[in-house]
Design a protein around this nucleic acid. Sequence first.
DNA 1: GTCTATAACGGGATAGAC
DNA 2: GTCTATCCCGTTATAGAC
Lengths: 206, 206
Amino acid sequence: MEKKKSSRDRILETAERLFIEQGVENTTVREIAREAGTNLALLNYYFKSKENLFDEIFNNLLEKYTPSLPIILNAELPINKKIEDYVSKYVDLLINNPKLVTLILSVLRHSPEKMANLEPTNNLYVSESFQEQLIQEAENGTIVPTHPEHFFINMISMIAFPFTIKHLIMLKNELDEKGFTDFMQDHKKSVSNTLIASLSPSANDH
Amino acid sequence: MEKKKSSRDRILETAERLFIEQGVENTTVREIAREAGTNLALLNYYFKSKENLFDEIFNNLLEKYTPSLPIILNAELPINKKIEDYVSKYVDLLINNPKLVTLILSVLRHSPEKMANLEPTNNLYVSESFQEQLIQEAENGTIVPTHPEHFFINMISMIAFPFTIKHLIMLKNELDEKGFTDFMQDHKKSVSNTLIASLSPSANDH
DNA sequence: GTCTATAACGGGATAGAC
DNA sequence: GTCTATCCCGTTATAGAC
């Protein structure tokens, strides 16, 4: 049954799994070849180097998981609804792929220029129309004027960072995996409420 | 002049510098020994392994830089002032030690249990009295009731995460190092305002 | 074109004998 | 405190089978 898949595909699948499970540095090309049921020479034949192999996998992951995010930000919705949708969808994505944040950050640390030049990176950090809307609604008086760039960074910070300190959160609050998932479900509301409250015109009367 | 320092101390200083500058994975024990003016075997004699060496350095770094943070949270100050102080001090700390976040996250990724069991970790993630205050002031009606744990996580997320995506922020906004520092100075206000607004009783009237 | 097997390189990390 | 042997890594190369 698995024999139908080409060696190339099996190498890709195995490498993706191991890179995500153990991290890139802790995964050897020999290990990948072994678990994919092939050999080191073939891996090198197809991908030339470990780095090339990783690049292909990383691109596929971003293309697979991230395209839905900018769609929400570009939709025709009131800002509050848009924030709720975006936070919820983004947190769900990371709950279902908890190692994705770590993988991205490891790329960002090891070779930031590569990350920055990747086209799918825009799915994670781009927000022109959303920032336009923040400015527009502020002019209309429905929300308080804000700095769109800082607002957007605050939003993705509150969404993504908890996953990078997942183990600390679990330890501090005595949570298991299920408990952490529930915690992050609650966290959605906290993030949305925080952002929406900060935009509320009545909130900034000191 | 430098000869007065013991080989052990020179190894520690050199390793700290290289770990922070280049990251742990990109620093070899041979390199540390060479730049410390000694040899590989002596490094192994004192520290047994690269990991032990790193543990000692990492502990020292946390003990050196983080103790001031919980002091702010435990002070006798109104909540708004406390938030402003904490955000400002924490961001300043990370501006002056931009690699600290990355270093911490790399430990968290590589060996979360080690990180969680480290005593100075509490300086980064502990907030009993602060959470008490959030509950107390909500009972007094000066702020809106909130979930202290989520609030605290949101606060440290907005503080720390921008440093992990520093290169993306710099690229997107066409900033150099100085520009990024200025950006983070502005970011302080954005974070404080967001948190304080979300606590404002008048903000949650929908 | 796809695949296996094997060997060798240069570099790095570690352990143990001295 | 020092030196050496050993092992694992990523990479490259070779020779050959389907």
